[in-house]
Design a protein around this nucleic acid. Structure first.
Lengths: 369, 369
DNA sequence: ACAAAACGTGAATCAAAAC
DNA sequence: GGTTTTGATTCACGTTTTG
């Protein structure tokens, strides 16, 4: 299933555009990219207390013009797109300096944006001069390889992570400081290290255990650390041998995934084994000829047929089909049809019977073991 | 000082590209633009409660391709740039559908981005299908006509509006609903009416009383209403005579300058720290698979899942939910579940970890000051 | 009259498995 | 791979209706 020559769980040294070209096509499930931001700082910045701000002035962040930056962007995005599976998705993080260039190029190349997400920093650097708004966020673009392909989004994992409400496109997370910040001789090892919490959410949302996650601008390896922790496989590409070495060291020292296999998989009702409506008859939860009501109150009453179809007003078909004929739009028959409980004479959705049957089958499964 | 033939406080009917060309060059202090977003909706969308979502399907939002949209964008941005004073600035609002196109074109034309700002919606439309993140924000780009020119930024006004702290680039404001939403025969008059609070902040930040504020996509005139209220002069351009008429009517009926602006000051509920259990995982204080014990002595042991839920005895749910299943009455999972301390092997309530994380976030907050 | 519950709605690129 | 069938999925507010 995997390409045989995929260099799993390794840091590859070199320019990502070159290295990507040597990887097999359509082999990667997820890409997270934190490219140079092209910051274009013009002068030193001093705080009001007369200390110097240690800004990003690395050589790797210098580009001559928008055109240069665009060419660079198109090159690495194309290379990424080639190695991505059809079902794969790509995340890019950036700020206003570069994200509009990146977003537009990415659309031009055929990527299809699924969301943009804003990382709201709980503790941003203030604007020392008071001449603009405090730059308190960065933007992440999440895109699929091509419009309409299926992709991974672990909706229920995101809900669980957000106290049982849908995860929104605004993520409030602190910047990477304190013990998490990698240091060498007391100096920060990399100027733009991202917090692990950010990668945790990205990987949990858009990949599954065992998936291959690639980071073309690996830096000091945050993506690798989190991938390992979440039981994903990873590939890092990094041009600077010093960063690559630091990343290897850091990942080796980071916590390995636990041994319990179940904990990493996200619950997904769409992947549960399907029970045809007829199974309720086969298992004696309904009888041929039983009435089903369309809603809790309504007088509309259909009859269950022996083969698991419904009959209403001369029509015959599945619970979904008959429901659709009674109501516009997409219909889930399991929730729309009600049976009458024998004891209480109350109407209950047939979805309840399905749940009972699922529990029944599950417990008999476990009894076999 | 003003160009003599500036049509002040008027709604000009026509395509903004044409109309702008008839205005004098370098005569405008501030532009706020809310262009079509180029949404590309494919089919009907139904809510889970079987009602139909009334999406944006207006003719003015239809473009054939990215190339068409880019040409349109370049045309109106160029026309705007011509009428802008050297000291002038431009705001554009958009979503991921269009904002990367707009941002890149704007940079190409020589505008210099000062900030981008995210409007975080306190009450966004949810994602009914559960297939993406809730689209909970829109993006505003704030740019000056050319790099290095002086521009207006009312730092102290922004501070005052934000409880004496620097105004950040994330603005949490409700969408336009209720009495503020303009209606005709009970139907919303315009599909994309913006809240006045948003314009209030924009105009207060980047213009001065008496300045001329232009809006090339005037719609139902929110920019005019707020400009009038803040004692700025305004020019609106609107293609649709129906919207133009509504705008004139609305502005005439709106409060004149001098009324108390208290209603526009917005409270920011985000500041109240909310820590979901999953944050302990995101911040590396717990790992997927870790055991949690129900009480200090008990043998009941649940497993932490990667998504921040607990698994016990086949059930899966939040720390509170699983606790409730083990104990009658209301349960505070934070105090009932215990982890085992790595060093001492002693059990400690997970509330301790929450406290640690709170302290951590707090100290990094204070470090900023 | 008042409180509680029900209802309506917003810039939305909104399905996926089985056959 | 295109077509058919099954069936998963929502949050914060403001307004209206019900009790």
């Amino acid at each position: 299933m995997d390409a045989p020559d995929l260099p799993i769980n390794q840091v590859l040294e070199g320019d990502c555009i070159d290295v990507l070209q040597r990887l097999p096509a359509e082999s990667i499930d997820l890409i997270f990219a934190d490219p140079p931001y092209n910051l274009q700082l013009r002068r030193e910045l001093w705080r009001p207390n007369l200390t110097l701000v240690d800004g990003v002035d690395d050589a790797w962040d210098q580009f001559g013009s928008f055109a240069d930056y665009d060419a660079f962007t198109t090159a690495w995005l194309s290379a990424c797109r080639r190695v991505l599976k059809r079902s794969g998705t790509l995340w890019v993080i950036g700020s206003y300096h570069n994200i509009y260039r990146v977003g537009a190029r990415l659309q031009d190349l055929g990527f299809w944006i699924l969301n943009d997400v804003v990382w709201i920093k709980s503790n941003p650097t203030p604007n020392f001069r008071g001449v603009r708004f405090t730059n308190a966020h960065e933007t992440l673009v999440w895109a699929q390889k091509e419009r309409g392909a299926t992709y991974t989004f672990n909706h229920h994992a995101m809900r669980a992570l957000n106290e049982d409400k849908q995860m929104r496109s605004d993520w409030m997370l602190p910047i990477c400081t304190g013990r998490e910040r990698l240091r060498v001789n007391g100096q920060k090892a990399h100027t733009t290290q991202k917090p692990e919490a950010l990668l945790y959410r990205v990987l949990l949302a858009s990949s599954n255990p065992g998936d291959v996650v690639l980071d073309p601008f690996f830096g000091t390896g945050t993506t690798g650390v989190v991938a390992r922790r979440l039981n994903r496989r990873w590939i890092g590409i990094e041009r600077d041998p010093k960063y690559a070495a630091l990343a290897r060291e850091r990942i080796a020292a980071s916590p390995p995934p636990g041994s319990a296999p179940g904990v990493y998989a996200s619950h997904n009702p769409r992947r549960e084994t399907r029970l045809p409506f007829g199974a309720l008859l086969e298992n004696n939860l309904l009888q041929p000829g039983d009435p089903l009501y369309f809603g809790e109150q309504s007088a509309i009453c259909a009859r269950v047929q022996a083969d698991g179809s419904l009959e209403y007003n001369g029509q015959r078909g599945s619970i979904h089909k008959i429901a659709r004929s009674l109501h516009p739009g997409p219909c889930n028959g399991w929730q729309l049809w009600f049976y009458e409980d024998a004891g209480s004479r109350e109407r209950r959705p047939i979805d309840l019977l399905r749940q009972q049957l699922r529990d029944l089958l599950k417990s008999s499964d476990e009894g076999e073991k």
